[in-house]
């Protein structure tokens, strides 16, 4: 905000609202990811997806000459306990690799859900479960932040001059991606909801300077003293963390 803006505070107000449902996918069909992200809520319910989740295999996937099937396990996701390990089986049809469906809960392992980058082209599958999200916020941000996050999540559309958006599910998933990658607790965190449904996490660094990271639907934004970049791709979260906390923390 402008450095010379004047801020005036009023008496405490009333907060409230009802809970919002989690997103899940269910049913038969082909889920073509293309260049879009697929958001899946594992809201502690078992949903069944038949058909296939389709996306072209990116250059990062192994090229198996003459093979039509392969099973890939992404062990790196298991290296960080907060992440799932994912097991996927791919089938090559003509020139296109297809991820055989369904990705079932049996294919996922790990203590907490988060974002899984499968390949460059399949992009991101967001998986989440209420209880584990709660644990993640409590672990990284503390119990006060849990209450605050719940309040922000309950804010309904039209909250700001009739136009403010509710918390975006994609932004929420990306927020949890960020939390799951933070190497340490954030001191005295503040949480805000943006008019476009994005989530801002703010804290003060050791010099008492304000640092903010905004999780949007498709990227992160950093507001920090001396930061020379403001926008980070979702896949650049490590770079973002280093810029926000310092290289020794992000390493």
């Amino acid at each position: 905000m402008p450095a010379n803006a004047l801020i005036h505070l009023m008496e405490p107000g009333v907060r409230g609202g009802s809970g919002s449902p989690l997103v899940s996918i269910e049913g038969a069909g082909t889920y073509r990811l293309g260049s879009n992200a697929l958001t899946v809520g594992l809201n502690n319910l078992s949903t069944e997806v038949s058909g296939s989740v389709v996306g072209m295999c990116g250059v990062e996937a192994p090229v198996l000459v003459g093979a039509n099937f392969y099973t890939q396990i992404y062990p790196s996701w298991n290296a960080i306990p907060r992440f799932f390990q994912v097991r996927t089986t791919w089938q090559r049809l003509e020139n296109e690799w297809q991820l055989l469906a369904p990705i079932q809960q049996d294919d996922l392992s790990g203590e907490l859900p988060s974002v899984l980058n499968l390949t460059r082209n399949v992009n991101v599958i967001h998986a989440r479960a209420t209880s584990n999200e709660t644990g993640l916020i409590g672990e990284i941000l503390g119990t006060e932040a849990l209450t605050r996050f719940s309040e922000l999540r309950n804010i309904e559309a039209g909250w700001n001059f009739g136009e403010g958006l509710p918390m975006s599910s994609a932004a929420e998933s990306n927020f949890f991606l960020l939390l799951s990658r933070l190497p340490e607790k954030v001191p005295n965190p503040r949480l805000f909801l943006m008019d476009d449904g994005a989530i801002e996490l703010q804290w003060r660094n050791s010099l008492n300077e304000r640092v903010s990271v905004v999780s949007t639907d498709d990227h992160f934004e950093l507001f920090a003293p001396n930061a020379d970049e403001a926008r980070f791709a979702l896949t650049d979260y490590q770079k973002l963390i280093e810029a926000a906390f310092g290289p020794s923390v992000g390493a």
Binding site: P2, A5, I7, H8, M10, N154, A157, W159, N160, G164
Partner: peptide
């Protein structure tokens, strides 16, 4: 309250200052 928000305060600012701050911010971000 039915949408989950309340008015907590207000901020006043000058339009030209807002524009100047934007220019300053943009100049710091490559």
């Amino acid at each position: 309250p039915e949408k989950g928000v309340s008015l907590k305060g207000y901020a006043t600012f000058n339009h030209s200052n807002l524009k100047d701050e934007t220019v300053r911010y943009v100049s710091q971000n490559k």
